[in-house]
């Protein structure tokens, strides 16, 4: 049973990690909590589902296309909502409240378009391969999800550390004004960040949809709460922290079920979030800045 629970923890954790990655990136660079990340996550799942079911596209097209759509949605939110607030130098609560509004809007639209029922990808969309050691089972899907989210994380970390764009992003995280003075196109990089973060969120949505067969207008909300917990655990704004936080959260949930009781699965993760903020607001791994890459 332990091996199986470990497998469960890793595959759950990798989706949390992917979701948290985009969420933390926006905070690190733009300095705002984008609470519409859950809504973007949900729309990413729905767009690729629509491509697969309505236009019978193969998954390898629908997946990047879904990410692209989610990215555009994130860009749209940045341009329509976050940018005016930035220009006004609004209080940090304002983006939170506005993105809550955007989430309500997105949820309601998804419900109008797709209905309130759970939707799922057609069976056998993904090869149904299975590996087994003794009692422990591992599907190709689980492996792919874990590999894919680790890969996307590695790309992000590499981008932040090794590219000119990453350097610029880290400079912006350090000081927006100075970066602007240095000639860094701050506004364009904000758009870029929102786009990338949303695309990652969309990818997490598609993967959740593939592995757990449940796409619904309300899937974003519980994921958002988990994502917040993961990001706080790892340290807000810290890219590696978000990923580790995601895995840590996945593991702690699975082991809360194993050792304690499933009644308190969610209470455990939120309690962890709560205690972490009291003990180390900067998170387990973070220093609260993107400069750590």
């Amino acid at each position: 049973m332990w091996e199986q629970q470990l497998v469960n923890a890793i595959s759950l954790g990798s989706v949390y990690a992917l979701f948290a990655l985009g969420f933390t990136l926006v905070f690190g660079v733009l300095g705002v909590i984008n609470l519409s990340h859950g809504g973007i996550f949900m729309w990413g799942a729905y767009t690729s589902l629509a491509l697969v079911t309505w236009f019978s596209m193969p998954l390898w097209i629908a997946f990047p296309a879904g990410m692209l759509c989610a990215g555009c949605l994130g860009l749209l939110i940045d341009i329509l909502i976050l940018k005016p607030l930035r220009n006004r130098q609004a209080n940090h609560l304002m983006p939170m409240i506005a993105t809550i509004g955007a989430t309500i809007l997105m949820t309601s639209l998804a419900q109008g378009v797709f209905g309130a029922d759970n939707q799922r990808y057609p069976a056998n969309l993904f090869p149904d391969l299975e590996f087994q050691w003794g009692e422990t089972r591992l599907t190709l899907l689980q492996i792919s999800i874990t590999v894919l989210s680790l890969l996307l994380t590695a790309v992000m970390v590499w981008m932040l550390k090794r590219t000119r764009m990453g350097l610029a992003l880290r400079a912006i995280a350090e000081s927006r004004q100075t970066s602007a003075l240095l000639g860094i196109p701050v506004e364009r990089l904000f758009h870029m960040t929102s786009f990338m973060a949303a695309a990652l969120g969309g990818a997490a949505g598609i993967l959740i949809g593939l592995s757990f067969n449940a796409i619904s207008p309300f899937m974003g909300q519980s994921m958002l709460h988990k994502g917040i917990a993961a990001v706080i655990l790892g340290g807000l704004g810290d890219v590696r922290g978000a990923v580790l936080g995601g895995f840590f959260l996945g593991a702690s949930e699975v082991f809360a079920v194993t050792f304690l009781s499933s009644d308190y699965r969610d209470a455990f993760s939120f309690g962890l979030l709560f205690l972490m903020l009291l003990w180390r607001p900067q998170g387990l791994f973070g220093t609260g800045k993107l400069r750590e890459g």
């Binding site: 909502i81 506005a98 509004g101 955007a102 309500i104 809007l105 997105m106 309601s108 109008g112």
Partner: peptide, 20 residues
């Protein structure tokens, strides 16, 4: 009907943007 909550969300966004 279905879009009732959408109005709620839209109001929230609009207030933050235009009536800070």
């Amino acid at each position: 009907q279905d879009y009732r909550m959408a109005a709620n969300g839209l109001i929230l966004v609009m207030v933050v943007l235009f009536l800070p």
